[in-house]
Write a protein that binds this DNA or RNA. Structure first.
Lengths: 165, 165
DNA sequence: TTGCTATCAGTAATGATTATCAATATTTTT
DNA sequence: AAAAATATTGATAATCATTACTGATAGCAA
């Protein structure tokens, strides 16, 4: 997506409406392909690219949510003890969070469904100090572009203000 | 041709040792490319595939950790209220976990680093009821393969495409 | 209407990862 | 030690999800 300075006014097109209703209708957390398949029952000529486009836009508008921080690249950690991470939504940087891991959580989760719970991961997200200093929203060159996250940030910024200073 | 009993005894080769030490040496959570770049200073001829292979193997051995559940496909959620998920490590299925979201967590995390914390996500992982019933470890065909997560298991069943249906 | 721009379908390109393969290295068995 | 079996490697092709590009179309504002 390109950073245009236009007065972006998204139009709720027929395709977009149907994509949205598809995500809402499919109970579980659908993949893009599942949405695509579902939508095509009503719009057989819709393009997969249109589904991608609209899902991203709907997420940026906060009408739906992306489940994952699907960063383009996997990261590795040499620290083997349980700990949590914080990730910069702009540049993808990941740091450790030195708070103690919970132990009761898995028990709590066990009471729902028949999953055999193996563990959990807790991840914070925010803006790293480096990105806070940057005026524009471009990710630094050390990081491959991650358009999805950048657009998601627009949404989260509206909802923040947890512990305002 | 038959992948029977796994006398699988991984050899700690020079390449593997250096990949491991690279992950340990790079303080932050490195991407594959960062590891590759670092390793090449000592082994200029090493293949990127070797780095991928060794990172996966080291993670399967528990010597390092993968930071993300980098599922191949992004998933979407129409539920907008804060809630947590549980994900099946075998088939990738995602369900909601009806425990109350924490509110103090972001405050706790704030005390470390200069991140501006926007929120958090908590994800459980385990084995879904369907996969618990399955004897083999193959993911169901409704799910695109998730090589990274299941690879440790899949490897023993190797070379067998699930084409026979 | 005229111009602007969002959106579309279709398709090509991208980028991360995985698979394949022949060659080499290491272990195991004889 | 030789032979057999298996693991590993480098190089490269293939895959798969996602993104970018294209020319056409349609809604909105002046």
């Amino acid at each position: 997506m390109k950073p245009n300075r236009t007065t972006t006014k998204p139009r709720m097109t027929e395709q977009r409406k149907i994509v949205l209703s598809a995500v809402r209708k499919i109970r579980r957390h659908p993949t893009v392909d599942e949405v695509y398949t579902h939508v095509r029952r009503r719009l057989p000529r819709i393009s997969l690219a249109t589904v991608y486009r609209n899902l991203e836009l709907l997420a940026a508008q906060g009408l739906i949510r992306q489940v994952d921080f699907a960063r383009p690249q996997q990261r590795y950690d040499h620290r083997l003890h349980d700990h949590y991470h914080i990730r910069c939504v702009q540049c993808g940087r990941v740091d450790d969070v030195p708070i103690d891991p919970f132990s009761a959580l898995e028990y709590d989760a066990k009471c729902c469904g028949d999953y055999r719970v193996l563990g959990h991961r807790l991840e914070f997200y925010g803006v790293c100090p480096t990105c806070q200093k940057r005026k524009d929203n471009r990710p630094p060159r050390t990081q491959k572009a991650s358009p999805r996250l950048v657009s998601a940030r627009v949404k989260t910024v509206n909802n923040r203000r947890e512990g305002a200073e």
